[in-house]
Amino acid sequence: MTTMKALCAALALAAGALTIAACAQMKALPSLPESHPEALAVGQQVDCSECHEDQQKGTLKNINAFSHSRAFVKNHRFYAATDARLCETCHKVSFCADCHTNQVEMKPSVKWGNRPDREMPHRGDYLTMHKIEGKVDPASCYRCHGRGNNERCVACHK
């Protein structure tokens, strides 16, 4: 029942957004490309400035702000929160779902054991280490294991 209500509310909002979207003014607003026009090499820092000037089109942020430095990769949650559509021009959602998912039984670092250059969480013996890390910064665990992907935890956390 509540599900229905939530669904109806969302549908109403969506319809509202669409109605607004239909107005003539919207035609002037540009969209990001469906996919990034240039294929990029995997396995290295993506430096947007190699190909992009500090251009700012419409409300697009400075493209170089998204250069994948190590700092960006570590802090990507701040960027994903406001620019998920930009990420999607290059990344399939399954790319994110390697690390972010509701339920999986394999650590990302095992699935991608052939890619030690990637920033996969929980390398090595995490069953031991998590007993320390989970106390130091539980909020960071909540981001991924709070509302999903906690089937594994049930076995011990009763």
Partner: peptide, 24 residues
């Protein structure tokens, strides 16, 4: 369902709703 759109004058709107995906 979810929907998103930019709006004129720099605004933007998005909404989502439905059933939670239950886990363990």
């Amino acid at each position: 369902v979810s929907a998103h759109s930019d709006l004129p004058y720099g605004f933007g709107i998005s909404a989502f709703g439905g059933a939670n995906v239950h886990t363990a």
